[in-house]
Nucleic acid binder design. Sequence first.
DNA 1: GGTGCATCTGATCATTGTCAAGATTGGCTT
DNA 2: AAGCCAATCTTGACAATGATCAGATGCACC
Lengths: 209, 209
Amino acid sequence: MQTAAAETRPYHHGDLRRALVEAGRHLLEAEGNADISLRAVAREAGVSPAAPYHHFRDKSELLDALALEGWDQLATEMRAALDADGAGSNRLVTMGVAYVNFARANPAIYRVMFACSLNHETMPEKLREEGAYKLVCETLIESGIDPDDEIGLELAAAAVWCAAHGVAEMVSLKEFEPLRNHLGGEDAFLRAIFSQLDLFRPASGRRVA
Amino acid sequence: MQTAAAETRPYHHGDLRRALVEAGRHLLEAEGNADISLRAVAREAGVSPAAPYHHFRDKSELLDALALEGWDQLATEMRAALDADGAGSNRLVTMGVAYVNFARANPAIYRVMFACSLNHETMPEKLREEGAYKLVCETLIESGIDPDDEIGLELAAAAVWCAAHGVAEMVSLKEFEPLRNHLGGEDAFLRAIFSQLDLFRPASGRRVA
DNA sequence: GGTGCATCTGATCATTGTCAAGATTGGCTT
DNA sequence: AAGCCAATCTTGACAATGATCAGATGCACC
C-alpha cells in the first residue's frame, strides 16, 4: 500500500528528497519503531530502492534529515507550551514537561533524534542558535541564572537537558504506571518528577564547583 | 580471528550459552557498537550461525542476557563506589557518578541494557529485589527520605534514576568537552552536573504533589 | 552396548544496505 | 527549435544478516 505517491508516477518525481523525508516520518509514526528500512521508505515514496541514494549519501543521512525535523518540531512545541503558560507558574518545569510530552508522543522520532546525536557525538548546531537549547538558556535566565556567568549558564543548561532527556526515556517504562495513576495522570506525574529535581525550582541557590 | 574458542573445537561445546554471552560481551566492548550481529557472535564463539538458536529463541534474547550481565556489573560498581566513599560525602552523588562512569566506560553494553528495557517496556525485576534500584532506595533513605512514605520514596528513586540515565547518555557529547575541561576532569564535571539537580543535596525539602 | 535426545551443521530464504551501469527527461546552449 | 548535458530514476547485482529446517553428531542413560 503506497500512501504517498499513488496517483500517476511522474517521470522525475518533483521533489523526491522532501517526499522521502515525509515518507520516513510516516513510517516512524506508524510503526512506532525507530529502525526504519531505507527500502521501506523508498517503497512508501513509490520509488526504487536505489533512488534515495541520489539525495542522501547514506541511510544515516536520511535519518539525520528526519532528526532535524524532529528537533524543529520539539522546539516549536516547547515554545508553544511556554507561550500558553499562565503567568506565575514554573516555566522551567513547563518546558521540561513539554519536552517529555513530545518524546512520549513521538517515541520513534525521538529515538532517531537522539541516536543521530550520539552517532555524531554532537547535537545539530541549529539547536544552539535558534532551537531548543537557546530556549532553555532563555528560560534559565528568566528564572534567575546569572546571564553573564557563561559557565554557570552552560552547566545549568546541561543539567536541565540531561534531566529532561532522562525523564523522557525512562518514563515510558511500565514500572511507573502505578505512580502515574496515583498522581493523577501524565502531567502531574512529570511535574512531580521534575519537582524532585530541585533545580527546577526558581532561584534555588546554585554553585558551580 | 576467533578469540574464545581457538584451541580444539569440542564436538559439543561444553557450555555454549555461556560462551555466546561472553563472545557477545567481547564484541560489544571491542567494537563499541551496540548493534552486534548474531552471526558475528557465533563466529567469535567458533560455532555455526544457527547454533545460537538452540540457546536463545531470538537475537533479542541474547541481547537480554547481555543486558542482565550489564545490570549486575553496574550494581557491583555502584556498591563498590559507595563502599569506597569517605564518610560525610554526598552518597547520592557518589552513586550517580558511579552510574555514569559505568555507562561512559561501557557505552555499547549500556545501550544494550537500556534498549532491552525499552523494548520490554520494563526493567529486569532483579533490579528491584537485589540490584541497582534497591541500592538507590537505600541510599535515598540514608540521605533523609522517609522510608515509610512509599510513594515519596518511589518518586524520588524514579527522579534519581531518570537524572542519572539522562546524564549518562548526554554527557558523551562533544558539546560538554569545554565544560569538562574547565571543571577539571570527568568526575568534577559530573559532580557539578548532579549538584545542579538539587535533589542530590541531602535532605532538601521535598514534596510529592 | 545400544538408543534417545539435546546439540550442532549446512543449506536455504527473505530482507536489507549499497553500488554500478543503463534508461529517462527536464533545462540550457546555440 | 534542435540537441546535448547532467541530474534523476530503474534494473540488476552482491554481500551480510536474521531466521528456519532437515539432517548429522555424540553425550547420557538404560
